[in-house]
């Protein structure tokens, strides 16, 4: 029993230990006389006899270095750190004991509660039943769990959303972008930008024959192979799409040169004319291509302008015989395949 308590006082060390398990009793000269059991557990030793400011330092308010500095700080919210755990900021309240018998400093875990409880393995009985730290811990833990659940739901929904988006703009058979995707790109490029582009409208020749004689599975295999060729023969920024059936569209970015567009079309026809083997059977097809470029218009064309013109060019190419390309507004050329 320290000198702190009047013999007739209701309060004793035991009572204080029970109600304030993290308090310190300090002699007028700054010597620590007693610490509550939980604080003792945190300190890892009984610091009775130590000087208070060897045990801890006051972070806020600034400049509190001695007992004399503490005396006027009753009912001020103090932020302190213990010397052996300088990164853990705790909260403290200070009170002078009447009659100049010293003082009491009561510490609480403040916002360091989660770290402190884990670090010093504190348990339910280490807290006063009145201490809300337990409820804070409960909330902290519950929040962590629900946050995890929310995050996992969000991730799931995001993945489903991405998969649905992908499906909505992809042709399931060839894996190429579909008509919807191409329409959106054409609209964006022709409306919002002034970049020169060219469009190749590709329609397979003899495809119906493959389908009719070898079956739909062979037809599908041919379409997949054509998709692969289109993907391989264009630059990274260009975009192929399957528009439906045996029709494909290719969008050539930054391409106003119809000579180059024609060479690309000729190369595509040549590649598509290479025999494709399905289940050991040779499938031979070809392709007709219509071409148009934004450079051919006095004003920026709309997507439907360009699609109508490239369609007409494709029709003329077909009409002139298989395996040809035709540039919109230009007389048909001889077949260019080497």
């Amino acid at each position: 029993m320290t000198e702190l308590f009047h013999p007739k006082s209701m309060v004793s060390e035991t009572v204080l230990d029970r109600l304030l398990p993290m308090h310190l009793q300090i002699a007028p000269d700054g010597r620590v006389e007693h610490v509550g059991p939980t604080l003792r557990k945190i300190l890892g030793k009984d610091p009775a006899g130590c000087q208070l400011f060897d045990l801890l330092s006051v972070r806020r308010p600034a400049g509190v270095k001695t007992m004399a500095d503490l005396v006027p700080l009753e009912s001020v919210r103090l932020a302190i750190t213990l010397s052996h755990a300088p990164s853990m900021v705790l909260r403290a309240a200070f009170a002078n004991v009447p009659g100049g018998k010293g003082a009491i400093l009561d510490i609480s875990l403040g916002l360091s509660f989660a770290a402190a409880v884990a670090e010093y393995d504190l348990n339910i009985q280490d807290f006063s039943p009145n201490d809300q730290t337990l409820e804070l811990l409960y909330l902290h833990e519950a929040n962590t769990s629900t946050l995890r659940l929310s995050r996992s739901l969000t991730e799931k929904l995001q993945a489903m959303h991405a998969a649905a988006e992908y499906q909505a703009r992809t042709d399931a058979l060839t894996g190429l972008p579909n008509r919807r995707s191409m329409d959106r790109d054409l609209d964006r490029l022709l409306t919002d930008m002034d970049e020169e582009i060219s469009i190749l409208h590709v329609d397979l020749d003899l495809f119906k024959e493959v389908n009719d004689t070898l079956g739909h599975a062979a037809g599908d295999a041919v379409l997949v192979e054509v998709g692969r060729i289109l993907n391989n023969e264009i630059r990274r920024n260009d975009k192929p799409a399957r528009m439906g059936g045996d029709e494909f569209l290719i969008l050539l970015r930054n391409m106003g040169d119809l000579e180059v567009a024609g060479r690309i079309a000729a190369r595509l026809i040549q590649k598509i004319e290479q025999p494709i083997f399905y289940d050991g059977t040779k499938c031979e097809i070809s392709a007709s291509i219509g071409i148009a470029s934004t450079t051919q218009y006095a004003e920026r064309p709309t997507p439907s302008d360009m699609l109508a013109d490239v369609d007409a060019a494709l029709y003329a190419a077909k009409h002139a015989g298989r395996g040809r390309f035709k540039v919109h507004g230009v007389e048909i050329e001889e077949k260019r395949a080497p």
Partner: peptide
């Protein structure tokens, strides 16, 4: 059961 037993 330890109060600090949860991994944040």
């Amino acid at each position: 059961f330890s109060l600090g037993g949860v991994s944040a």
